[in-house]
Design a protein around this nucleic acid. Structure first.
Lengths: 222, 222
DNA sequence: ATAAAAATTTAGTATAGGCTAAAAATAAAT
DNA sequence: ATTTATTTTTAGCCTATACTAAATTTTTAT
């Protein structure tokens, strides 16, 4: 039950979000995501390993342990709940909430988060569409894919974005793309991997590979 | 505009709250309030002095500069607004809010605090009765005194508490003493500096010196 | 006005967490 | 199967912040 430092929490969160079932997370990827140097990451990995929060074998990347995973999920739960608070209660735009939530997520109080959850009406997703883990650490993982990987002609719904950066979200706002929009890919252009899409209401649009790789969709049931 | 570390903010806040017009704050008092060693305080005082946030002359205590004072007030504003949020919106008791607000007060975002202020309806006081500085740093300083210093027979209103600790606040809850209560001192006992008080509704009570020194009152106008 | 007590500062040390540059291990390419 | 490129780790260093013990200054008491 010892509590973690801000840095340790950030590392766990980063490891969790880079984790893919069965694979291990590379030092370099972590350094990239955390904006720090590979050598600094190695240092911290050793510390986390000593605390049994991660599995670490020199030169072979890391994964969360049974002890570390729930702690990572807690940080993510806090982050996403605060994002909902900022957007729903304080009226922040979805491109502003991430940065502030990065700070709020480190406030330590289990009761605070439970009360916040209740105050917000037990939201299931944050403003970017990411699922919010419940108190027990259960996290919704409905089938989904990147818009970039969708086949032509399939009916899709945008369920979330992968990139939470201000720049990307402002771009989506500017082009009128939102969570919940229904659309289909009408044409995949192999040359630059860009896509032609058509929204339910008929509007058509052209998206670069980079954009379509940061939009998460699910097949529309019905 | 460079922003301060958590530690620096805590020091400024502590200096502010120990400051008395015209006097200087002693190293030892700060160490006491911050739960750290005199020598650690000396170190930090030098750093704050180098940043021109405090006036510091070796062996003679410190005071805030024109640059440091508004920064201290900002931290206090954040702290008290979060306390209101925790109590009014999340339903925390007044004895629980201080500790959590100690963490939330360090979240850096001017816009966050302004929006929070508005969301809360621009409250004037926090759950302990302490005045909340406005956006410009103006802080209400109406005449007030300690209950311990009040003369017998004067009509008083409890406007705040000096000690925010869980123990003290639980004691007040248990004895039914709240902000806003009207009372008068009926008898001062010189032997142990304790007081006999009578509430407006007639209830009488005996208070130790320690308790009466942590209750702030004003003379009841009318 | 000194001596004793109290407060403060200095000197030296520790820890968390980050960095650079060099060394070592792994992966990729001929 | 070597060589080359990439990734990762090690070694050594730095800053912020705290600590202990010793030295110094100020205050208090005789």
């Amino acid at each position: 039950m010892e509590s973690l430092s801000r840095s340790e929490e950030n590392y766990l969160k980063a490891i969790f979000s880079l984790s893919v079932e069965g694979e291990t997370v590379a030092t370099r990827k972590l350094a990239q995501l955390l904006n720090s140097k590979d050598s600094s990451v190695t240092d911290m990995l050793k510390r986390l390993s000593k605390k049994s929060l991660i599995h670490y074998k020199k030169y072979h990347g890391v994964s969360l342990t049974e002890k570390g995973r729930p702690m990572a999920i807690k940080v993510i739960r806090r982050h996403r709940l605060w994002e909902v608070f900022l957007a729903d209660k304080l009226g922040f735009n979805w491109d502003q909430v991430h940065e502030i939530a990065e700070q709020m997520e480190h406030v330590q109080s289990e009761e605070l988060i439970d009360r916040l959850d209740s105050f917000l009406g037990f939201p299931k997703i944050d403003p970017h569409g990411d699922p919010i883990p419940d108190k027990m650490g259960n996290i919704d993982t409905a089938p989904h894919m990147l818009l970039a990987d969708a086949d032509e002609g399939i009916q899709l719904t945008i369920i979330r974005v992968k990139d939470d950066s201000t720049e990307f979200l402002r771009y989506l706002d500017a082009t009128g793309i939102s969570i919940g929009d229904n659309l289909e890919v009408t044409n995949f252009i192999p040359y630059d991997h860009s896509l032609q899409i058509r929204f339910e209401e008929g509007k058509e649009m052209h998206l670069s590979q980079k954009v379509s790789e940061n939009i998460v969709v699910r097949e529309r049931k019905n």
